[in-house]
């Protein structure tokens, strides 16, 4: 059976199975287990209504538990074992990690990524949102800046390979350098330390559109009166933007910032395709992939370190969500 056919069968079976489950389980509940008739009708309806939410939730909870909650525990457990998966070595994998030079580079680089990318993407997004607001061709401009969101990280990396290429006849950067009088082409991917920033540019290029779209909606939501009052008081456009508008959308800015931060900790594609983690550009997600399939103990240990970094922001996120529910 070709994969394509297999895919069609899966859609039919998956969708059919889901519908059959939800419909069948409801029928079972209402007609067989707690029928809404006979002497116990009142009690039956109450009971059916107590069970029903869990009926609706069960498939989602099962999949979420298996694919996201269990791995948190499973990964930690696995990280306590050695390469073969049988010998318990406690925190040995973590000790080996911290002794590894590449791991320390990856941590430092990752910190740089987390500091620079969300800040830059949010900043450019905010500027783009404000500038395109009320512009006659603003929507077209927004579409173009938003477009990289649709492109895969691999595709984006390839696009930027054409900018960074170590050849003045292919790479835009080197062409500009040659035009300004430089003698030889440089491989920007091999410039120590700064190559990290050239890689970050790719992710900033992708994420600015995301920040722009959300912040632009937030800017539209600002009450007109506050801006009008500021104009009457003689504030100039910069004052209106920084003193009146930005403080009012601070909450959204924080949400955008944290969302991009989570993303930065997940993206391994860019480093993997551009440098393969060489030339001092390793970050934690790509470092983990270098151990995947070779030493699961190490790989899970790196994954757990990433989890520990995410944890504080995750807790804060949950607290925010709970506040909103109330």
């Amino acid at each position: 059976m070709t994969p394509l056919l297999q895919g069609l069968v899966t859609i039919v079976l998956g969708v059919g199975g889901c519908i059959a489950y939800f419909y069948g389980a409801n029928l079972l509940l209402d007609k067989v287990l707690f029928p809404a008739r006979g002497p116990k009708i009142g009690r039956n309806i109450t009971r059916a209504n107590m069970v029903r939410p869990w009926l609706f939730l069960f498939p989602a909870l099962f999949v979420l538990g298996l694919y996201l909650a269990y791995p948190v525990v499973g990964s930690f457990w696995r990280s306590l074992y050695g390469r073969d998966g049988d010998s318990f070595i406690g925190l040995g994998n973590y000790q080996a990690l911290f002794a590894d030079e590449t791991f320390r580079t990856a941590v430092v680089n990752n910190l740089l990524w987390v500091l620079v990318v969300p800040a830059a993407a949010t900043f450019f997004g905010l500027i783009a949102a404000q500038l395109t607001d009320r512009l006659s061709w603003g929507n077209i401009a927004k579409s173009i800046i938003f477009m990289p969101m649709a492109i895969s990280f691999v595709g984006a990396s390839l696009i930027w390979k054409f900018v960074y290429a170590n050849d003045a006849d292919i790479g835009l950067i080197n062409a500009i350098r040659t035009g300004l009088g430089a003698d030889e082409a440089v491989d920007v991917m091999q410039v120590p330390f700064w190559n990290n920033f050239f890689l970050m540019v790719i992710l900033i290029w992708i994420q600015t559109g995301f920040a722009m779209v959300i912040l632009s909606a937030a800017l539209r939501g600002i009450p007109e009166e506050t801006v009008e009052a500021a104009i009457i008081d003689g504030a100039n456009p910069f004052q209106i933007f920084f003193r009146i508008k930005v403080p009012q959308i601070m909450g959204t800015i924080v949400v955008v910032w944290t969302t991009i931060t989570f993303l930065v900790l997940k993206v391994f594609d860019i480093v993997y395709t551009m440098t393969g983690g060489n030339f001092g550009t390793q970050i934690l997600p790509s470092y983990m992939m270098s151990y995947m399939f070779r030493d699961d103990g190490r790989a899970t240990a790196v994954a757990f370190v990433i989890m520990l970094i995410v944890l504080p922001v995750m807790v804060w996120n949950i607290l925010q969500a709970r506040k909103e529910l109330r």
Binding site: Y67, S75, V302
Partner: peptide
């Protein structure tokens, strides 16, 4: 909301 941000890397090996 919490699971929304669990790093994917964690899920791979298990």
């Amino acid at each position: 909301v919490g699971l929304l941000v669990v790093p994917l890397q964690l899920a791979l090996v298990p």
